[in-house]
């Protein structure tokens, strides 16, 4: 094991740039999939007959596919039909599709967990369906969704490492490049990368705890 050789400034800086890519991919995918997931979840919840059933069908398909397959599809498959992405965009595309489907189910079940009496009261009070959703059901459902949403985000941050396979220069891929030079770097680099993923995800769950407490008060 060569700790000092593994932890040179050049290597650390190289990994840091990888972390930056991991964070960018994660944040952009989280924002996009939250928007699409919420919209799809609300459509599922609303039971707009055929539309909801169709969304449910798509969501079920995506949820039951391996993420790696979706990643391959967006990077290798889509160019076959003339849609070309950079590595970065292909990764975001794949993660957004997969996470949107996962989040749609979380949104749907969170909304369905809100007591039906709340909807009846709001509708009887003269609010429209959308107003009821906006002021009453969604805010109450959101409280119930925070924990599962955050564990989904944590999965996403970890899953970004799969994009190594399409050579996205993220934290994981750069780690491979470094220990590829010298196997004595392997364990020190693994430990450093593991610690980095841990810190990022742990901060995310602390933040979630903070939001959860704020919402409950």
């Amino acid at each position: 094991m060569n700790w000092s050789g593994a932890y040179t400034w050049i290597n650390l800086n190289y990994l840091l740039q990888g972390l930056w890519i991991t964070i960018q991919i994660s944040v952009i995918s989280i924002i996009l999939s939250s928007i699409f997931g919420a919209i799809l979840g609300i459509i599922r919840y609303s039971k707009i007959s055929k539309v909801s059933a169709f969304v449910g069908f798509l969501v079920d398909i995506v949820r039951n596919l391996p993420l790696l397959l979706i990643l391959f599809f967006s990077y290798f498959g889509l160019p076959q039909i003339g849609i070309r992405f950079s590595t970065f965009s292909a990764a975001i595309f794949a993660f957004t599709i997969f996470e949107s489907a996962m989040l749609a189910e979380i949104f749907r079940s969170g909304l369905e967990a809100v007591d039906k009496g709340q909807t009846e009261a709001a509708r009887s009070n003269g609010l429209t369906y959308l107003q009821t959703l906006r002021y009453i059901v969604f805010p109450q459902g959101l409280k119930k969704m925070i924990a599962p949403i955050v564990s989904q985000f944590i999965s996403l941050v970890k899953d970004t490492s799969l994009a190594t396979i399409i050579l996205l220069p993220d934290l994981m891929q750069r780690a491979q490049v470094i220990y590829g030079q010298d196997t004595n770097y392997m364990i020190p680099i693994f430990i450093l990368v593991a610690a980095t993923y841990f810190v990022v995800n742990y901060l995310l769950s602390l933040f979630a705890g903070f939001i959860d407490r704020r919402l409950k008060n």
Binding site: Q118, N125, G126, T128, I136
Partner: peptide
């Protein structure tokens, strides 16, 4: 919705908006 503006309802389990 127009009708419900003019006809209120009080429920067995109150159903006040929890949030």
């Amino acid at each position: 919705n127009k009708l419900r503006k003019d006809v209120g309802m009080v429920f067995q389990h109150f159903n006040l908006y929890a949030n």
